[in-house]
Amino acid sequence: MPEGKIVFKQPEALEDVPTHYCPGCTHGIIHRLIAEVIDELDLREKTIGIAPVGCSVLAYHYFNFDMAEAAHGRAPAVATGIKRVRPENVVFAYQGDGDLAAIGTAEIIHAANRAENITVVFVNNAVFGMTGGQMAPTTLPGQVTTSTPTGRDVKLAGYPMKVAELIAQTTGAAYVVRRTVTRPKYIRSCRKAIKTAFETQLAGLGFSIVEVLSTCPTNWGMSPLEALKWLEDNMIPYYPLGDYKVIDEVEALA
């Protein structure tokens, strides 16, 4: 009899536990991609992750490596503290859009501009998820949330924050891209970007960030499939997918 060969399995970097994420939420896919990349690059035993405040605060229960919890928005500062004293480790922060683009704008901009040799996975679902669907800095114009009940009025609440475009302006950033995970081709592309982001850090090339457009069916008031479609129809036009900054040294990694 021919010997069996394992062609697909649960990543070692992911715990075999159910998550608390809502049905149709794409956090699960993004967690999985990170775990797969960490396994592929054989980084699990040297990785230190930072969980944010927001829906993904419990990420340390799902990832199977050392992790810290950061105060709201401070994950890049905590990651900086760890990486500076343990440059031999791989350090990444997982942040949502409230965490990174509202309360944590100072920390993310300065970490990027210092060329801090860390990786950030930025999950943008255009809403504060954990607190029940309030307006985030990334909420689209006219989008109804529990704190913009008649839709986001940009005259009153300002404009959605384009994080990848913003970070790309910093001299210190090495790799800045935006992806999504709404369909298999996008998921493959996102996985590749996360891998490149970690490789950027491994090569000591500086700050890397992957913005991932993500769904929040519960707070958007949609079915999972409706949410995927709404993201593609509404978020991608405002937040175009693509590479916003890839320095030559990162290009050369490919």
Binding site: I48, I50, A68, A70, A71, R74, A77, V78, A79, T80, G81, I82, K83, R84, V85, R86, N89, A106, E107, H110
Partner: peptide, 12 residues
Amino acid sequence: ACINMVLGAAAA
């Protein structure tokens, strides 16, 4: 930011 960098380094 500094106190949260402190937290990171202490955690490490």
